[in-house]
Amino acid sequence: MKHQTERQAWMEILAKSSVVNIERQVQTLGKLPEYSFLRSPEIGLTMLRGRAGGTGEVFNLGEMTITRCVVKILDTIGFGYVGGRSKRHAELAAVCDGLLQQNEWSFTVQNQVIQPLQTIIQQKQEQQQRQTEATKVEFFTMLRGE
């Protein structure tokens, strides 16, 4: 993605967080408004694509599971698209997406759900980077017979 909108950013964070973490953060919101499913959580596949040499011709690499869900919450429509097969994950992502589009909810949901989740993702990523960095190697070429 070249330029990410605010909505794309929160949808990404919701997709990449574990359902356990989302559930815990959503609970801090207290009682949620009623919502209905415009599309009940549905499991399917996404065909993943790659490029020859990383930059060339597109090819089909293989599939991955995806779960999607659409909810109507108050007067907005929330969408959830998450890798894997957790229906609850897609539902929570859709609910949060719906709430985040509403003025009276967006601030709270950003602070109590999105930001903590983003911190968790970032911390995990940084730890993994530090672990990889610890294996950075400087090889010295030896002369033959040395």
């Binding site: 399917g44 596949l45 996404t46 993943l48 694509r49 790659g50 599939e63 993994q128 990889t132």
Partner: peptide, 23 residues
């Protein structure tokens, strides 16, 4: 198992240059 699921989407080609490298 994969034959039992509908195919909903095609992804954008994976951008391996932006990979978070582990090795």
């Amino acid at each position: 198992y994969r034959t039992t699921l509908p195919r909903l989407y095609y992804s954008k080609p994976l951008d391996t240059e932006k990979m978070q490298v582990q090795r």
